[in-house]
Deep mutational scan, measured.
Amino acid sequence: MPVRRGHVAPQNTFLDTIIRKFEGQSRKFIIANARVENCAVIYCNDGFCELCGYSRAEVMQRPCTCDFLHGPRTQRRAAAQIAQALLGAEERKVEIAFYRKDGSCFLCLVDVVPVKNEDGAVIMFILNFEVVMEKDMVGSPAHDTNHRGPPTSWLAPGRAKTFRLKLPALLALTARESSVRSGGAGGAGAPGAVVVDVDLTPAAPSSESLALDEVTAMDNHVAGLGPAEERRALVGPGSPPRSAPGQLPSPRAHSLNPDASGSSCSLARTRSRESCASVRRASSADDIEAMRAGVLPPPPRHASTGAMHPLRSGLLNSTSDSDLVRYRTISKIPQITLNFVDLKGDPFLASPTSDREIIAPKIKERTHNVTEKVTQVLSLGADVLPEYKLQAPRIHRWTILHYSPFKAVWDWLILLLVIYTAVFTPYSAAFLLKETEEGPPATECGYACQPLAVVDLIVDIMFIVDILINFRTTYVNANEEVVSHPGRIAVHYFKGWFLIDMVAAIPFDLLI
Rank of each mutant, 00 (worst) to 15 (best):
R164L: 07
V8A: 14
N38P: 14
E372R: 10
G224D: 05
S318K: 09
M137Y: 09
R62K: 10
L170D: 14
P2K: 06
I359H: 11
S243Y: 15
I96N: 02
K135Y: 05
D67L: 07
P63Q: 07
E134K: 13
R366S: 11
R281A: 15
P386N: 04
L296N: 06
I19Q: 03
I126L: 11
A89K: 13
I96T: 04
I19E: 01
D287S: 09
D136V: 06
A228F: 09
N369M: 04
T152Y: 15
C44L: 01
V198H: 04
A268L: 11
V325H: 08
G47M: 06
S182N: 07
I82V: 11
A211I: 05
V132M: 07
L15R: 01
P72Y: 01
T305Y: 05
P245I: 07
G224I: 06
R5T: 09
L69N: 01
I333K: 11
V59I: 11
F106Y: 03
P310C: 05
M308N: 05
V113Y: 11
S243G: 13
C64D: 01
A307I: 12
F129S: 01
V377I: 09
D16K: 07
R242W: 15
C105E: 14
S243C: 08
G139D: 09
Q75H: 07
S243F: 05
T162C: 12
S26E: 10
P72R: 05
P249I: 11
L212A: 12
A282V: 05
K364N: 09
G184I: 14
Q84P: 01
A32I: 01
P347Q: 10
S379N: 04
R252Q: 08
K93I: 08
L200R: 12
Y99L: 01
V384P: 08
E289R: 08
K135R: 08
L87D: 13
V112L: 09
A217I: 10
S379H: 11
N257T: 14
T65K: 03
N12P: 12
K93S: 13
G6H: 12
L316I: 14
A350S: 12
I42H: 01
A188H: 12
V180M: 07
N38E: 14
D346H: 03
L248A: 05
P168F: 03
N339V: 01
A217M: 05
C39R: 14
I18K: 01
V110T: 05
V215E: 15
I19A: 04
I82C: 01
L212G: 07
A80E: 10
P227N: 11
M291H: 15
I123H: 09
E95P: 06
K161E: 14
L127C: 06
Y99C: 01
A172R: 13
A253I: 08
G262M: 14
P300M: 14
R56W: 01
P151A: 13
C44T: 06
K332P: 11
S354E: 09
H368Q: 07
A193D: 12
A121F: 13
S313D: 14
Y327A: 12
Q247T: 12
D136P: 14
R356P: 12
T145H: 06
P251T: 09
A285T: 12
E357P: 12
P240Y: 15
R73A: 12
V384D: 08
S264R: 12
M124L: 05
D119Q: 15
A89V: 13
S207I: 15
